[in-house]
Write a protein that binds this DNA or RNA. Structure first.
Length: 645
RNA sequence: GCCUACAUAGCUCAGACGGUAGAGCACUUCCUUGGUAAGGAAGAGGUCACCGGUUCAAAUCCGGUUGUAGGCUCCA
């Protein structure tokens, strides 16, 4: 009998008879692993546990704790759900059912509306199918076989998918009991392996995401390797709801919306403080990094938008002011600052000595977003960005990008963003400018990223039509990904607006533009940061930084003096003047997420001190008022992060 | 924009069968003058999102509109 050698991830080698399966490899390692295993990676390819191994290879056993293993479990659970739906509604037609991060969905054509009650019923059926512990079996089919099989089962969507698979590719199907689904796999070996799952929500989706196609019902669910992990996930989702920025914004009195102006936020006094502090922070960096701030118009004649290309490419997102008398005099409200900045650039002749010219603008932008995409502060129609455009020579691009990375790092350090993803998007099919300068620019961007030690993914063909770009993404409380920072090279706009500078040989040259925003939209940033911190802002951003809590009304006057002393040093202090006991005032301040509480009673008044209570730290004892002011000022000036982040 | 669901007091939510609205918190006033997460009492507050229809009678049934939520597509 021949033997094969399987190399494990730790470098050790297991020798087994040829034809052994990955499951047997797992068993030879340990019963726990064999029990948890969902699939295996053999020589880099993910395969089922019951595939016979015929030759030497490297192998690693996947469990739901690995990302790839979890994906297999999720995918198998999607099949289990489809199986349950088909059992309950044999006429249902299956579309696609992939795994997401931590979740899966299946799109199904189903007459029945999927109510919460039906969701429970499907879940119960899934439990039953899991308990029945059907073997999951893989079959390889030829294209005609596959087409015939699924046509016979009325699975029109599957038939369509099969017709598009190229002839040479392997077509496989997985069956469990009387259920069969077209699938590449791999899958768990039996339905009994899927135990800890929950259906989460329903929505609708179009076949292939195209609104001209049939509407399908989409059912979302999740699955995990243990009860504990499932519960942890569900608990995390519950917690995430509590830090939804829309709820926090209302509870903390930061902003609101009104039906009369959908998706145009109203910033209340407290929200406005946060907004302005962010702007001041960016201004301090602009000073350091050599930016000049400008103020530009809100409304421009459409000529400008025709010239910039927005009329052609972006008109459906623009607010247009029509003039019935004269169509030539239509106006467009700006959705972006860039065209306005080119007008400042070309207001005079520019020398190479002036470059790079960095123009920053907090101007308000309006974009008509489709009603269905709006969401709280993260997707609005009126917003402003920490926007700037850098006009520079082609040779200066590298240095500018480098300086931007340093700036981004400085910004993210202040806010404590660690889970950041960076993407480099390259030339799309439809692009402006010559391919050579694109290639050059892409090389500059990727080299600079590498030199700066930044991990990034390349998104081929995802660049803007006018140039390649680098985007930074962070995640909100619900693990949704949001783009904050964007750095975009632009060869097109300088061309369209005929921008020039005179080089050191008295020759006219074309500058390059870099569009960049670090926080992105301030509105979105506030939304994301609220969720990131659960509303626990660092002292420098907190709308009320300190609240004075008099123990009784007899101390109101002293409380007023303390407030005045703090405010004279620009510390945002208030007094809780309500006729309440100290416990109630503390509770109120804690719920309002005020970072510093200053309790003043008879003792404090006599010694000119305050008793400090910091959120998340509790009672810190009495401190001299002057001393407190110094330490708070320092914390604010340094923009220290709060200790809970 | 499309699909599905939802819309009752500032907030969170009750209001089978159609008979014309209720709680807790918040708010106001009074009592209480208190030491590190809720002291007590009283009061005020709603054209039940909007428009129309059915009905003797609509928060409740039907249609439309608007907004919101979760998706699809798009994006800062």
């Amino acid at each position: 009998m021949t033997h094969i050698q399987m190399t494990l991830p730790d470098g050790s080698i297991k020798e087994l008879p040829a034809g052994s399966t990955p499951l047997e490899v797992a068993e030879s390692i340990g019963p726990r692993l064999a029990h948890d295993a969902v699939a295996a990676v053999v020589d880099g390819v993910t395969i089922d546990l019951n595939v016979p191994l015929e030759r030497d290879a490297t192998i690693s056993i996947l469990t739901p704790r690995d990302e790839r293993g979890h994906e297999v479990l999720l995918h198998s659970t999607a099949h289990l759900m489809a199986h349950a739906v088909k059992t309950l509604f044999p006429q249902a037609k299956l579309a696609i059912g992939p795994a997401l991060e931590e979740r899966f969905y299946y799109d199904i054509e189903l007459e029945e509306p999927v109510t919460p009650e039906l969701l429970e019923k499907i879940e119960a059926e899934m439990k039953r199918l899991s308990d029945a512990d059907y073997r999951v079996e893989r079959r390889v089919l030829s294209q005609p076989e596959a087409a015939q099989l699924f046509k016979g089962r009325g699975e029109d969507y599957k038939v369509e998918i099969i017709s598009e698979i190229s002839a040479g590719d392997t077509i496989s199907a997985y069956s469990q009991g009387d259920f069969i689904d077209l699938c590449r796999g791999p899958h768990v070996t039996s339905t009994g392996r899927i135990k800890y799952f929950k259906l989460l929500s329903t929505s609708s989706a179009y076949w292939r995401g195209d609104e001209r196609n049939n509407v399908l019902q989409r059912i979302y669910g999740t699955a995990w390797g243990s009860r504990k992990e499932l519960n942890t996930y569900l608990h995390r989702q519950e917690e995430a709801k509590k830090r939804d920025h829309r709820k926090l914004g209302r509870d903390l009195d930061l902003f609101s919306f009104h039906a009369i102006a959908p998706a145009h936020p109203f910033f209340h006094p407290k929200g406005t403080i946060i907004y302005n502090e962010l702007v001041e922070f960016m201004r301090s960096l602009y000073f350091k990094y050599g930016y000049d701030e400008v103020i530009t118009p809100q409304i421009f004649g459409v000529e400008l938008w025709k010239k910039s290309g927005h009329w052609e490419h972006y008109r459906e997102h623009m607010y247009i002011i029509a003039d019935d008398e004269d169509p030539e005099r239509w106006k467009g409200v700006k959705p972006m600052n860039c065209p306005g900045h080119t007008l400042i650039y070309s207001a005079k002749h520019r020398s190479y000595r002036e470059l790079p010219l960095r123009l920053a603008d907090f101007g308000r932008l309006h974009r008509f977003e489709k009603s269905g995409v709006l969401s709280g502060l993260t997707r609005v129609r009126s917003f402003s960005q920490d926007d700037a455009h850098i006009f520079c020579t082609p040779e200066q691009i590298g240095a500018e990008i480098q300086s931007l990375f340093a700036m981004v790092q400085e910004v993210y350090a202040v806010f404590g963003f660690e889970d950041v993803e960076v993407k480099l998007s390259t030339r799309p099919e439809k692009s402006m400018g010559d391919p050579e300068s694109w290639d050059k620019a892409e090389v500059i961007l990727s080299d600079t990223l590498t030199q700066s030690g930044i991990n990034f993914q390349v998104e081929a063909g995802e660049g803007a039509f006018y140039g390649p770009k680098i985007d930074y993404f962070i995640r909100d409380a619900l693990n949704r990904r949001w783009q904050l920072t964007t750095i975009q090279l632009d060869f097109s706009l300088p061309e369209r607006f005929g921008l020039t500078y005179i080089d050191d040989h008295s020759q006219e040259q074309r500058p390059v533009m870099i569009h960049r925003a670090l926080l992105g939209s301030l509105e979105r940033f506030i939304g994301v940061y609220l969720e990131h911190t659960a509303g626990d802002f660092p002292l420098w951003l907190a709308p009320v930084q300190a609240i004075v809590l008099p123990v009784s009304e007899k101390r109101l006057e002293y409380a007023g003096q303390v407030k005045k002393a703090l405010r004279s040093r620009r510390i945002r202090a208030e007094v809780d003047q309500r006729d309440e006991k100290i416990g109630a005032k503390i509770r109120q301040s804690e719920l309002g997420k005020i970072p510093v509480m200053l309790i003043v009673g008879e003792k404090e008044e006599q010694s000119n001190t305050v008793s400090v209570r910091r959120r998340h730290q509790g009672d810190l004892g009495a401190v001299a008022l002057t001393e407190l002011i110094e330490s708070l000022s320092e914390e604010i000036d340094n923009r220290t992060r709060s200790n809970t982040q």
